[in-house]
């Protein structure tokens, strides 16, 4: 009996990279789209995200959507 360590290692590596990658990407999107916290001592009003941050967020979310679409493709094509 032999354990297929290569396959197990592969699964582990891919899972780790994909999970951390997608969660990281999505978090970047959330950070980009959310408001910056008020500076200490500044007014209560918080700054809306800038145009650059917003574009980055949209791009990050779009990449996540692509990943989900690929996931559906994997399920359907299996």
């Amino acid at each position: 009996m032999t354990i297929d360590w290569t396959a197990l290692g592969q699964v582990f590596g891919v899972t780790l990279v994909v999970t951390v990658g997608i969660v990281g990407l999505f978090t970047v999107g959330i950070v980009g789209a959310s408001r910056k916290p008020a500076q200490e001592g500044a007014a209560v009003a918080v700054a809306a995200p800038g145009a650059g941050a917003r574009t980055g967020a949209v791009a990050a979310f779009a990449l996540c959507a692509v990943a989900v679409a690929y996931g559906i493709y994997l399920i359907v094509a299996a």
Binding site: T19, V20, T27, V31
Partner: peptide
């Protein structure tokens, strides 16, 4: 182990990235 470590790493990362956010 596989899923747990991946989820743990991802949780760490996401809390780190959003530490300045409400």
């Amino acid at each position: 182990f596989v899923a747990g470590l991946a989820a743990m790493a991802a949780t760490r990362l996401t809390y780190r990235l959003t530490r300045n956010r409400d």
